Simulated assay, not measured.
Amino acid sequence: MSTPSLNDLIELGAISEAQGLRGQVKVRPHSSDPVALLSSKTVWLSLIPRRDLSLSTVSSASAPHNSKASLSEYKVKGAKMHSGNVVMTLDGVDDRDQALALKGARILVARDAFPKADKDDYYWVDLIGCHAINLQKESLGEVIDVTENGAHGVIAIGELVKKEVRYLVPFVKEVVQSVDLPNKVITLDWQLDWQ
């Protein structure tokens, strides 16, 4: 299998720590319901090589960025939830030292490997780029991002290219009237002058 580009992969979490002595890793998922992460058979880890310690006194804004992120494929031997984290066993990671070497790695999965979503359920990544309109058919902009605030999802709408947010809209059934993923259109009960 050829290495995909970062644009073809979706980041689902990051390795926060080693778990136990047998090479398991503790993953902090980006979602409160990490179904795609738990069901993945293959993951990609993105590691940015450690910088020279002599650069540690240079601010991150002015430090040179000569290092490129590496992308490594791992087969998943097992994954389970434990105390709000996902504990994964990766093929080839057999002891605590190997697991600790992966600390900080971002976990990425190919979008086509996600389980099929139920009717009226959506992967947030699929909403990004959708055109948002209101009930009066007025354009609100494009979905730039989707986040979670604890109670519900929040969609950031505005100009996608500039990443300029105009509206932060709760992703709740009272506001979201319809989601048409094939046509990339979301209809919202939202007015142009609401901030």
Rank of each mutant, 00 (worst) to 15 (best):
S2P: 08
D8H: 03
E11P: 02
L12C: 05
L12D: 01
G13V: 10
G13T: 10
A14M: 07
G20V: 06
G20R: 08
G20F: 06
G20Y: 06
L21F: 09
R22I: 01
G23C: 04
H30M: 08
D33G: 00
P34E: 06
V35I: 00
L37G: 01
L38A: 08
S46L: 05
S46K: 07
R50M: 10
R51A: 14
R51M: 12
D52V: 12
L53Y: 10
L55P: 02
S60P: 02
A63R: 13
P64E: 00
H65P: 00
S67D: 11
S72A: 11
S72D: 12
S72C: 08
V76N: 07
V76H: 08
V76E: 09
G78D: 14
H82Q: 12
N85M: 05
M88F: 09
D94N: 00
D95W: 01
D95L: 00
Q98H: 00
A101I: 00
A101E: 10
A105C: 00
A105E: 02
I107Y: 02
I107N: 05
L108K: 05
K116I: 12
K119A: 15
D120F: 10
Y122E: 06
Y123A: 03
W124Q: 12
W124H: 10
L127C: 08
L127W: 07
H131K: 15
A132I: 04
N134Y: 09
L135T: 15
Q136W: 08
S139D: 14
S139A: 14
L140H: 06
E142G: 09
V143R: 03
T147L: 13
T147D: 13
N149F: 04
V154Q: 13
I155P: 01
A156Y: 09
I157D: 02
K163Y: 15
V165F: 06
R166M: 07
L168H: 15
P170Y: 11
V172E: 11
K173Q: 13
E174D: 15
V175P: 02
V176S: 01
S178K: 12
V179P: 06
V179Q: 07
D180H: 11
D180S: 14
P182D: 08
K184F: 13
W190H: 07
L192Q: 15
D193P: 03
